[in-house]
Design a binder for these strands. Structure first.
Lengths: 140, 140
DNA sequence: ACAAATGTAATGACGACAGTTACATTTTTT
DNA sequence: AAAAAATGTAACTGTCGTCATTACATTTGT
């Protein structure tokens, strides 16, 4: 959803876009979009202004935004679940395995993010435009 | 939790272990463990038998089990959420972006799994044992 | 025959997240 | 100055996935 929103903003590069229009494109509620935009603002990916005729726009060119940044801006929880209950204190495995797995999972997540870094928002838009036979001209 | 269970089974290599004992180590309910074991059986990672004095054991040596296999055995849903609602049909971005992102996400997930492949269950156990100062001798 | 163990169904509790409504606040436009 | 447009934010609901619990049928060894 975040990529979708940023892609629409990239289409309208320079112009400000309202959350209502973005919500129309994603087919959801404007409040959902605004909550998403807050996260993207914190990551300095978009700039948003209140007021009549205003809205949001990209803060950087699409070629300078990669999907790992979007992932980090939006995804707050770890991809690997860690059990809620504490392990049995009398079991050496349960006592020590957590920190070992934390290292392994951190490495795996880094690998994932490094792969996402290879794709820019501009590249996504390029593919969407190339496959553009399926759409009309109007964005929003 | 799956890695934890398999690690305990590796500790008791050869011996059969009951779901009740495994549940004690993870500090959860035996039924949870049994459901987990079903997935690990499907992946041919463990062998389980019903009956008095029976239980589960590893089907392969810990050096021949890597974390990617465990991940695939247990994790059924995609790590990236795809929106439930259909996008606005009048928006070319919404129409085409899904398949582009599917490719990108599949690549990222492959990168993650390739990283997990580099760690074997034996390696995890080795680290746990090396940090063994924190535990007692009894497993289970 | 009995005990021990798994397989499985039904149900509940809980958290994460999308969604919705409502409203205060800010800024442009007129 | 007033109105309109837009965001920021709070409160609440619904849904979904997962862990948890209880209960019971089934299988297998002693």
């Amino acid at each position: 959803m975040a990529v979708h929103v940023l892609a629409v903003l990239a289409y309208k590069e320079g112009d400000r876009v309202t959350s209502a229009l973005l919500a129309g494109s994603v087919n959801t509620n404007p409040v959902i979009i605004r909550r998403l935009l807050l996260a993207l603002q914190r990551a300095k990916l978009v700039e948003t202004c209140k007021g009549a005729g205003l809205g949001s726009r990209l803060n950087r060119s699409p070629g300078r935004i990669n999907l790992a940044e979007i992932y980090r801006a939006v995804e707050n929880s770890e991809p690997f679940a860690t059990p809620s209950r504490k392990p049995n204190a009398a079991c050496p495995v349960g006592n020590c395995i957590r920190e070992t797995l934390d290292r392994v999972f951190a490495s795996a997540q880094e690998a994932l993010e490094r792969d996402l870094e290879k794709t820019t928002l501009a590249a996504v838009i390029g593919e969407v435009k190339a496959a553009g036979a399926c759409g009309r001209k109007k964005v929003g």
